[in-house]
Write a protein that binds this DNA or RNA. Structure first.
Lengths: 166, 166
DNA sequence: CAAGATTGAGACGTCAATCTTC
DNA sequence: GAAGATTGACGTCTCAATCTTG
């Protein structure tokens, strides 16, 4: 394994710093609005998109450890955002389902989240540059998947736009 | 504030994912070698570069909250890596100084860290692309910090690399 | 025994309150 | 009173051990 070149090291450093700056800002804004953190948003969105899921599948989509997800689901269930349903085919598993409250909360979170994304990236990079950045970052983890945005599913009156729904 | 465009949202998502993937790998490798995490490395490196520092100044360089840094220093002092010295000019402050052990540990960590950086970025992007990525990420947090050759004057490929962490 | 999922204990992060010195 | 720094209380993360079902 060759040693990393200067440009590689600089890219690493900035990846760490840019992530921290962007994430801190976004979490800050959500907190000021009395909303939960981004992890909750991601879980809610994935459940809204992909219907009731087994924890194992959700874990894969969210890149969380099993024990971590288990406790996240505890908190979200206590907050009334999800339901744990038993799985008929496999007694070990469950199905995690979004509640109406969970759906509503995600919709309330999106405009705030979108503002943070725009402030952190959209305001600093043009569309062409953002696409270039996304391309380069995509190579770092090799995946090509969907983003955090999701329309309400309803027509035009939605407070948050239809965005990249792959 | 306009809504974020699709490319912006995709860049956000990939920033979050790429960061997590890269960081998780690096922390994993360090742990396997029985070494502490990247936060310790960053603190050790900053102290090695900038001599004894007051916690307030270290906090600025590491982008940590004050209470967070206070506890980090507790652990590092207990491990014998740093020393807390009283500050003659200002009784409220201190000077945090690296010990010989701290210096040795950072030197042991660097090759492992460098391997992780190379694996996460260097192996996937050419030097030109890495520089492009660094440039785009730099705009996200607006910083233009010292180049890889700054500080002691040693080259970045020495066990003195410019690194940092979330 | 293997896989899905949870739990107890301990490390770490976070908030607000606190202490000391300017 | 303001700034530098720490502390107590509480929440979250992490590891290993555990429980249950296939």
């Amino acid at each position: 394994m060759p040693k990393p070149c200067d440009a590689t090291i600089l890219a690493w450093t900035r990846l760490m710093r840019a992530h921290r700056a962007a994430l801190t800002q976004a979490e800050q804004v959500l907190k000021e609005e009395g909303l939960p953190g981004l992890e909750w948003y991601d879980a809610l969105l994935e459940l809204e998109r992909s219907g009731p899921l087994r924890p194992r599948d959700l874990q894969g989509k969210l890149l969380l450890a099993q024990y971590n997800l288990s406790r996240l689901l505890d908190r979200m269930a206590e907050a009334g955002l999800i339901e744990r349903r038993s799985c008929p085919q496999d007694g070990r598993g469950q199905f995690i389902a979004l509640t109406a409250e969970g759906r509503k909360l995600r919709q309330r979170m999106w405009p705030v989240y979108a503002r943070a994304i725009q402030s952190a990236i959209g305001a600093r990079l043009g569309p062409r540059e953002a696409a270039e950045l996304a391309e380069l970052l995509g190579r770092i983890y090799g995946a090509h998947e969907r983003g955090p945005a999701a329309g309400s599913g309803k027509p035009a009156s939605a407070p948050h736009g239809r965005t990249s729904r792959a």
